[in-house]
Design a protein around this nucleic acid. Sequence first.
DNA 1: GCTATTCTTTTTGTACTACATATTTTGATT
DNA 2: AATCAAAATATGTAGTACAAAAAGAATAGC
Lengths: 239, 239
Amino acid sequence: MEKSKPNTKHLEFDLPKLHNLTMADQVELKLREYFKKKAFKPGDLLPKELEIAAALGVSRNIVREALSRLKALGLVETKKKRGMILAEPDILGSFEKVLDPLIMPDSTLYDIFGLRLVLEMGLADVLYMYKTEQDMQELEKIVIKEKPDSEKFRIKNEIAFHGKLYAMTNNHTLMRFQSLLLPLFDYVVAFEKDHYKPGGVSHADLLEILRNGSVEDFRKGMRLHLEPHFAWLEHIKTK
Amino acid sequence: MEKSKPNTKHLEFDLPKLHNLTMADQVELKLREYFKKKAFKPGDLLPKELEIAAALGVSRNIVREALSRLKALGLVETKKKRGMILAEPDILGSFEKVLDPLIMPDSTLYDIFGLRLVLEMGLADVLYMYKTEQDMQELEKIVIKEKPDSEKFRIKNEIAFHGKLYAMTNNHTLMRFQSLLLPLFDYVVAFEKDHYKPGGVSHADLLEILRNGSVEDFRKGMRLHLEPHFAWLEHIKTK
DNA sequence: GCTATTCTTTTTGTACTACATATTTTGATT
DNA sequence: AATCAAAATATGTAGTACAAAAAGAATAGC
């Protein structure tokens, strides 16, 4: 809990703390400031490594380490041997690189599972704002193809149907966010499997509500559809 | 799709220039693989830079660049002059470093605003699962302190009340996620200001519902509370 | 005079060396 | 045996050198 560092704000006073920052750290910060101050836009050419090194009075090695970090975060890109440019911002790009269920504590995995439930329950209003007849038809196609027999197909159906719901929000960030989180659910689903029972509301039911029902109906329907997952969340809550 | 290289095994023969990947890129990947394969746990000491360099047949420079990237992503930490360790995973750590409204396209900003609405609408069920009497009392304190006069205080109240709601979910990841997204809302709120009208349901109303109402009541209440924001979303949707 | 080709320059990518500094370990002295 | 000092260790930083590729400049051909 207290491991996070909210106290970086009054770091200016603590001189020794500032010295705890390596040169590469400082250069990284300086570069971020610089890009902001100069209002660099995506595609703009950045200063050359040697220029930066000379301007900041550090070796080119350090500059390269700092730039390497910014590259890892997706903030800059190297255009072959031509120079470096500010990259098209993608807030989920770096997120993607860290999402690995194998190195993630179970608590975070559970958190993300809860996050998914919150998201799906919250979709209703935005869905009703953007849904089109064509969306309905595509959802219908997905529902028709569903085969209730195999466990493997069940998960595939889940992904297709719910993925389409996210896509219907016209919210590209939300869509990608969901698709990034998706692989993690497999792990939770594996834990959950023993307790899983299908909810009382099917995908076909949800589609029917989406066509002829109100937003409130859909929220209730989605809640019932997700009931098994909520039950599982309740189950692990006590532990 | 076919960009991934399964043939890194006999990479010794290929001239490195055949790949678009730089040495630092490759070392970064190799290290990620290695940590996974060896099932490193947080706190474990990593091999020394020179050992890695020797093992992979690259210079120490390259290894340092790769490690620097993993550091930027929060995957490894350096313990001063003692060695490097695998860091406590924090999926939002790198996310935080990229969130800067100044370098973000407006479309993403809108997406995140929509994401917020989805989250808040979805909170209800989890809230009712975890809420305690103490939470109610703390919410009450926040509501009582509200002063309806100043615009500045209004935003502060918003943050306090809604932040507390997130905290009540006992979902640490969700909590941090919201607090990271919060600064971005200021920008949207600035756009939105001209159109803003208080919703029909106040924080006090929401608290009352939370105490004595059902989950459905709360969802409806929250929807009305957020009505101005939804209206704005509807407004920018057409553009 | 204009276009195509070649040469030169520029800039990133990589390697190697050297040394500083802090931490741990080892060794020596009382 | 305990304390303090010195050595060993590993990261942090600086600097040089060169390769490779792309852009720009210069030259040759029509």
